[in-house]
Structures are given as C-alpha cells and as structure tokens.
Design a protein around this nucleic acid. Structure first.
Lengths: 198, 198
DNA sequence: TGTCTAATTGACACTCAGTGCCAGACGGTC
DNA sequence: GACCGTCTGGCACTGAGTGTCAATTAGACA
C-alpha cells in the first residue's frame, strides 16, 4: 500500500514519459519546429490528451520551474535573521546549482530557452511568480514600513533586482557554455549592483 | 515638398488610425475578447492587411514602446559622466512621465497590460530589448573590466536591476490607480535596492 | 494625358495552438 | 456482476499568424 494512489502514480509516470519524449524531440528538431501532434504521436497518446497533462507546449520545458519560487521562499526563511538581505538572497538563488551529470543537457535546454521567444517569455512570467512567492519574506526582513504604504513596492524592487541578477547570470552562463560556474557569475552580478548603487 | 515620401505618410496615417480603432475596442470589450476580425472590420480593412501593419495583436498596445530603449540610451549618454550610475539611471527612467491629459487612458491601458498574460509577457520582452539598448552606455560608465571578460554581465545586472525597479514602480502606480506620482515610486524603488545592498 | 512600375490590398487556403464536448474505455469498489 | 468516477480519443471549433497571388492603386515620368 503506497501513500500515493495508483491513479496519481500512473498519472505521474505518464507525465514524466511524455515530458521526456517531448524534450527529446525539442532537442532534436528544435522547439518551434516540433508540433503537439509530433509529441502526441511519439508518446503514443492523442493530441487532446497531451493538453490534459500540459497546459501549453512551453510547460513541458518550464513546468518544473513552477515550484521554485516557493522553495526559494522557504530557503530564505531559513537564513539567519541577522544576515544582510542582499547576501541572504544571493545565498538562496545560489542554491540553484548545476546538477553534475546533467550539465550538458541543461546547457542545451538553456540555449533553446534563450533562443526561443515564446519560451523566453514564459520563463520571464515564472520570474514574476518567484517574485510574488519571495515577496512576503523579503518584506518581513526589510526595515519597518515608514507608514507610506509602499512596503510592497520596496520589497518588490529588491526581489526583482535579485531575480534580474539571476537572469543575467543565467544568460551569461549559457552564452559561455557553462565555462564559468553559475555560482561565480551570480556573485559577480550581485556585487555589480552593490557597487553601482554604493 | 515634405521630407517624407507620400507613401510612408499615408502608411503612417493608416497605422495610427488602425491602432486607435483597435485600442478603443480593447478598452471597451477587453484585449482577449477582441479578435483581429473585430479590429479589421472596425477599421475597414481586411484581416490580412492588419498583419501588414502589426505583427501581432500585442504590438498594437506595446508597439510604441519599441523605441523607448534607444531613447533611454541616448538620454543616459547625455547625463554628466561624473554622475553616479545608479542616479543617472533613475534620472533617465524618470523621464517616462505621465502625459498630463492622458493619465486616465494610460491607467486603463496599464491595467489591461498587467491583467492580460500575453500582454504582460510581451512587455517583459520589451524590457529585454531596453536592457540590450542600454547595455553599451552602462558598460562604458562602469569601472574598467578587471579582465575576466564579465563586463557584459556586470552591466547587464545593473541595467536589469534598474528596469526591475521601473517595472515594480509601474505596477504599483497602476495598482494604486495613479494615486502616487510614478516619479516618486521610482525613487522609492531605486532607494530600496540601494539600502538593501548597502 | 497616358503609360509604366512598384507598393498595397483583399481573398483564399493553410498551419498550429488551445478549448469544449461527448461517448466509450478502464480501474477500483461494493 | 453492477456501479461510479476518472481518463481517453475523436471531433469540431475558435483564433492567431503566414504564404501566395491576382487585382488595384498611386506615384513617376514622358
């Protein structure tokens, strides 16, 4: 007796299999050149069923990024309260590390993402979600609201700045084909803003 | 004899007229509920002709933002060289001011933009373009490259941070229905990052 | 004025993403 | 076996965006 029902187990298995088949096609023929029909045929399901697993074609590639914001927020909450906010944020985003064996594959996916407008757009929308997820904890760590009702804006600006660094570092990492570890690039990006405003 | 050929003048006139008709429909029935056929019918042109003026439906709303990046870059280049970079960037984005008579309309457009996923996504893509446009001038103003080849990343992080502030301020301005002038919100956003990293 | 030429246009057909609907298949339960 | 909820495939549909082509239009030039 599993903690998970058989229904959801088979569903998750199908989910993973469709995603894998689709990613293979994407990496082989390119994202835009691969149609939903191609994926459905390769996965042995109907066109209609594909959309029962993934809302959009982009979700196949970016679906796993959906929960990252909440995870990052949890990680931030566990940083010591006396750690400077900017440092804490750097430490949190730096948790996103290159999975050792997956580097080559991750690089190809990243190149595809930065090179495909619709994918890039979706990833930017994910950033907005991360921003919303991180907002409460960042607001909590910010100096007390002076009473002008702009605490949300202050927190949003800081989070957005951090995510902007993540994005810039990620793009550089991809363009340089992973030559420099992402962690170092993140530090450089965070420090740049630190120096520019200082 | 005009400096502009008659061809392009009539074309620009048609362009403006289609945009105006379309915007009216958008504000009346909503962006997503308005189809290209609606616009074409209202403007007295064919569906096909619409796409000769605008590449996408989103371009009708965001098309005028296309050149903002280049304008901002020019404005930044004219700021004194000894002005701190972060201050200079604030002064540049603060040029985007609410056109006095257009406040009500701009507010509605902004609400539509923040409330429509496809429009929001496109606007974020414009941000990337602005970032690319501003990059060279920001790179020029940054301390000399220490030789690690990461000058682009440093500049990108700073620009992205500034644009993130613009975005956060814009969203707050919209959500508060323009209660606080955008300029003030921008200053708050820029200062927040300044304090967070300091 | 008339003719040549190039840009513009509308119409048609097409691809592709995404959605609504419905009837049937399948697995688990009693 | 009958019952029930879920998943599935098939079908039709909307709506965005593109390629093509013949017809039209307006400017240029003689």
């Amino acid at each position: 007796m599993s903690s998970e029902s058989l229904w959801s187990r088979t569903r998750r298995a199908a989910f993973a299999e469709i995603a894998e088949v689709a990613m293979e096609l994407f990496l082989e023929k390119g994202f835009e050149a691969t149609t939903i029909d191609d994926i459905a045929a390769a996965a042995g399901i109907s066109r209609r069923s594909f959309f029962r697993y993934f809302g959009t074609k982009e979700d196949v590639v970016l679906g796993n990024l959906a929960g990252e914001g909440a995870r990052a927020a949890a990680a931030l909450a566990e940083r010591p309260d006396d750690e400077p906010l900017w440092t804490a944020l750097l430490n949190v985003v730096a948790l996103i590390d290159e999975a050792p064996g997956e580097r080559e594959r991750l690089l190809k996916i990243s190149e595809m993402m930065y090179g495909t407008p619709s994918l890039r757009a979706r990833s930017l929308e994910k950033h907005l979600q991360w921003q919303a997820d991180l907002l409460p904890e960042v607001k909590r760590r910010l100096p007390a609201d002076p009473g002008d009702g702009l605490a949300d804006l202050r927190a949003a600006a800081v989070v957005a700045g951090a995510i902007a660094c993540l994005d810039a570092a990620g793009e550089t990492w991809t363009r340089q084909k992973g030559a420099v570890p992402l962690r170092e690039l993140l530090k450089v990006a965070f420090d740049s803003i630190g120096h520019a405003v200082g």
